[in-house]
Design a protein around this nucleic acid. Sequence first.
DNA 1: CGTTTGACCTTAATCGTATTTTAGTCGAAA
DNA 2: TTTCGACTAAAATACGATTAAGGTCAAACG
Lengths: 195, 195
Amino acid sequence: MALAYKDDVKEKILDVAQTIFGKFGFKKTTVDEIAAAARKAKSSIYYYFKSKEEIFEAVIEKEASLIRVDVIKILESNIDSIDKIKQYMLVRMKALTELVNFNDAYKNQYLDHLPFIEKIRVKYDEEEIGLIGRILKEGVDTGKFYMQDVNLTSIAIVTAMKGLEAPLFINTENSEMESRINSLLDILFYGIVVR
Amino acid sequence: MALAYKDDVKEKILDVAQTIFGKFGFKKTTVDEIAAAARKAKSSIYYYFKSKEEIFEAVIEKEASLIRVDVIKILESNIDSIDKIKQYMLVRMKALTELVNFNDAYKNQYLDHLPFIEKIRVKYDEEEIGLIGRILKEGVDTGKFYMQDVNLTSIAIVTAMKGLEAPLFINTENSEMESRINSLLDILFYGIVVR
DNA sequence: CGTTTGACCTTAATCGTATTTTAGTCGAAA
DNA sequence: TTTCGACTAAAATACGATTAAGGTCAAACG
């Protein structure tokens, strides 16, 4: 493999963009700032990316791929479907606290909801629904799970998960959060009806 | 009971305010419009309400009390806890399509999220969590349900419900919606794990 | 006395315009 | 192939002038 100088610069740009976007958000960061931090002229940035939005998307994708590594590992492991979902939730919650921009694209949806950020959100939501769906389907195929509509259930899980992030984090330390998640997952797995 | 002329005027104001708020939303309706529609001077409105916000809250409360009648009826009936939740969901979804302003206060939270509307939303969310909580607690007390944390479960249900409204309504006719709700409630009741 | 009202006040929204920022282009240089 | 400075067009900001709208009040009405 030859020297990939181009890729180095590109990564440098992404690195500084990640921290600056993380500090000020998409709207409040200028391409000039990114350029300055990367010690390049602004025009050079446009040699590597065709727009500010593309830079942001690349940063998000960079963060998302970090989660994906962990998630794929879980998916391909031989553990029980139940445990796969449990593991998935933990990874998901960990990601929430670490991946600043990925998160920001979600939370600030109402503040200044730019259409392209909305698109990113939808894209990763769908990916997440797909991933949960794979676990569920595997569970169904192996006779572990039963449900009428796998896709609708996936949507329900992701939706509930996203909505629960706020109340789950508020006044909750890490150790308690895990037990809360587990108590909710118990409902998902076994329901609330005694028999 | 003596003639309650005051109450008549107040209701008239609320009536016209309900339709005008319903058409234009809180921000875009003026007190002058409400006054004109009620055939009063603007100052007269302030004889009955101390602010525009108070009018809006009263309209919301008026709509909310309509739901409350149905809900209380369900709560106090002698049907099974499982069916109470099912009934509750149906009433809730029906309300969603009928009570324009109540709804608007929810949906438009991101467009122009006025702090006082946020307060209203939180208030009725908490009421809803409380209502679900009562049904759950009753189920637990009668040995029908089991869960670790009733309150957290209530939050989870309300959260999921609110989040699912959108995907549940999209491309879904009324008949199909009911079956979708039921399939999701089955998960809540019995879980997804086969045994 | 309970209710209604128009005149009035104050603050917030709108508008028009001048100015500045900033995303993105381009040809030339390294 | 990569970098950059000069440039453009469009969007954001600034700001004063004007209008619209929420809210008050003392007087009037029945």
